[in-house]
């Protein structure tokens, strides 16, 4: 984790030496930050949206000021402060700002404008496409497996196969999943029902092992055991069985 912070600060110092840059656009434009949306400052300025985040992030006020470019620290001060003190605290504030931005981001992406911003990124394949062959390049959505800082890296959800994947690029695979949150795919699917309709209409395709054109015997160790994972009800009988699964697992397994 400390390497991670040091890395980010390196990036900063090069940026700081140049002309003044707004924090949010430059944070989102950083290499590896392609999954982040830009949060409008009005959202961050509204105390209601930021409720309880002060409890989760240290140096909350300074961090927020940094994000909103309200902090009037000149390059001079930052670099030549007494005993190097301001520089240390600046890197702490910077780290806190990144955490705060991430936690606010998880909230923002569940709002109407946030979902819209996410949908535009989704359309541009900003989160990549499903690596599963039969999903035919379906766009992915980021998904957290925990809503607590530092627990689980971000994963990607495919609405077509309904499965979760590790980001293809190593630079994305370690982003904190709580910055997108556990509710994101669910809220996205509810907000854009046309996505569910679209994937519902796609033909269900699957693969099974073949040797010289023949299937593998079901009793063999390598016999098919996972067809259920990609299966959808298709026959009348299966749809009846599916109806029985509405609230619980049917007790009798025939």
């Amino acid at each position: 984790m400390s390497e991670y912070i040091a890395d980010r600060n390196d990036d900063d110092s090069s940026e700081d030496s140049g002309s003044y840059e707004e924090w949010i656009p430059s944070f989102c434009a950083r290499f590896g930050h392609e999954y982040y949306c830009q949060i409008p400052s009005e959202f961050l300025e509204d105390d209601f949206n930021m409720t309880a985040l002060a409890l989760e992030v240290p140096l909350y006020r300074q961090a927020l000021d940094l994000i909103l470019d309200l902090e009037a620290v000149s390059d001079d001060e930052a670099e030549h402060g007494e005993n190097g003190q301001p520089e240390v605290s600046r890197s702490l504030v910077e780290h806190a700002a990144e955490q705060l931005y991430g936690l606010a981001h998880a909230r923002y992406v569940l709002t109407r404008p946030g979902l819209q911003a996410l949908a535009e990124k989704f359309d541009r394949r900003a989160f990549g496409t499903c690596p599963r062959y039969h999903c035919g390049g379906m766009q992915l959505l980021p998904c957290g497996l925990s809503d607590t800082l530092g627990r689980q890296p971000v994963r990607l959800y495919c609405a077509c196969c309904g499965d979760l994947y590790v980001p293809a690029q190593a630079r994305h695979a370690q982003l904190d999943g709580c910055f997108w949150g556990t509710s994101l795919p669910g809220v996205f699917l509810q907000h854009f029902p046309e996505l569910g309709e679209y994937v519902g209409k796609r033909p269900v395709q699957s693969y099974s092992l073949r040797v010289f054109g023949f299937g593998v015997n079901e009793r063999a160790v390598s016999g098919a055991r996972m067809a259920w994972l990609r299966q959808r009800p298709s026959t009348e009988e299966e749809w009846e069985e599916y109806a029985k699964c509405e609230y619980e697992m049917p007790t009798e397994v025939s």
């Binding site: 067809a227 259920w228 994972l229 299966q231 069985e241 599916y242 697992m249 397994v253």
Partner: peptide, 14 residues
Amino acid sequence: AQLARWQELQRLKL
């Protein structure tokens, strides 16, 4: 969730 239960049912049957 309903689909996941149905798929789990298929797995148990297999």
